[in-house]
């Protein structure tokens, strides 16, 4: 990565030859807060560190490694790669989230991977609201060589999803990836539209949707927690993808999310191209957050 994280930069030179006393711990807690972990989790992690190292001399690198391992311990149980091409047939995967978080792009990236695996998939342009959302998904479908089912802008999204699943069952497809319109979680009307999409899929397959992927933007702050809660409640989120980790934000709020919700994190987005999707790794995420092993790779 080109950048070192804020936390990493902040740590550089901070602890060289310094005793891990109350002042130092406070500085450290501040740095964690600056990575969007939130006040509560930051203070918890700092307290954990203090348990074993309070008043000891500690180097920058030692503190980074210790921090990374605290974070990794929280994130490790959430690390769960998923192979959408496997499992029930047709596997119905719904992508949900707030506006602009990266849903459509993430579907495009996954579609490209699936094509390489030789899976028979169908993309569904369930965002029937936003201008040119259908065209955007269509371009990704063409790139991946996977068909896209759509209806004109303004059509009922739930109806489209119903038809898509019927079609996938009829044609014995491996999976159906459903794009949905971005919606803010506090908008009751839009959230009930999403609930309707979920209900409709169940009519054709009581186990569907098999995956409901919440797409979170790495720049988001504490609002991510409310996003997870609301989308879980409405759509039964089964897993998370975090996008835009290639920018200056390192998505620290994911630690707070992981503390509060036993939801697997499947992938991270690190760019806008098809190949810019990686399986989530607790260790890599923790290291990137504290700026470990990044300077070396410049």
């Amino acid at each position: 990565s080109k950048s070192s994280s804020k936390l990493g930069t902040g740590l550089t030179g901070m602890f060289g030859g310094r005793r891990l006393d109350d002042d130092a711990l406070e500085d450290l807690e501040d740095l964690l807060i600056m990575s969007d972990m939130g006040a509560k989790v930051s203070s918890k992690i700092t307290a954990n560190l203090a348990k074993t190292r309070f008043d000891k001399d500690i180097s920058d690198d030692e503190i980074r490694i210790a921090l990374a391992s605290e974070i990794e311990a929280i994130m490790k149980p959430r690390e769960q790669v998923v192979d959408f091409a496997d499992g029930p047939r047709p596997r119905v995967v719904l992508f949900v989230g707030v506006n602009g978080s990266g849903k459509t792009t993430t579907i495009g990236k996954i579609a490209s991977k699936l094509k390489e695996q030789g899976a028979k998939a169908l993309l569904v342009a369930g965002d029937t609201f936003r201008a040119a959302a259908i065209e955007q998904l269509t371009v990704w479908g063409e790139r991946a060589g996977i068909p896209v089912l759509s209806k004109p802008t303004g059509a009922d999204a739930a109806g489209l999803v119903y038809e898509a699943i019927e079609k996938a069952q009829r044609e014995d497809l491996d999976l159906v990836l459903v794009d949905t319109a971005g919606r803010l979680q506090n908008k009751a009307e839009l959230m009930s539209e999403l609930a309707k999409i979920v209900r409709v899929t169940r009519k054709l397959d009581p186990d569907a949707p098999h995956d409901v992927i919440l797409v979170l933007d790495a720049t988001v702050g504490q609002n991510a927690l409310s996003q997870v809660e609301a989308f879980r409640h409405t759509a039964g989120v089964s897993g998370i993808v975090m996008t835009k980790l290639d920018g200056t934000a390192k998505g620290g709020v994911l630690v707070a999310v992981a503390e509060a919700h036993a939801l697997p994190i499947h992938f991270v987005g690190v760019g806008e191209k098809a190949e810019d999707l990686q399986p989530f790794s607790a260790s890599a995420y923790a290291k990137a957050l504290v700026g470990l092993g990044q300077e070396e790779t410049v």
Binding site: T219, A249, G252
Partner: peptide, 15 residues
């Protein structure tokens, strides 16, 4: 910019 942005807001704005 997105009003839901977290601590990164300063970094993005500055750059």
């Amino acid at each position: 910019a997105d009003a839901l942005t977290g601590q990164d807001a300063v970094e993005t704005a500055r750059r």
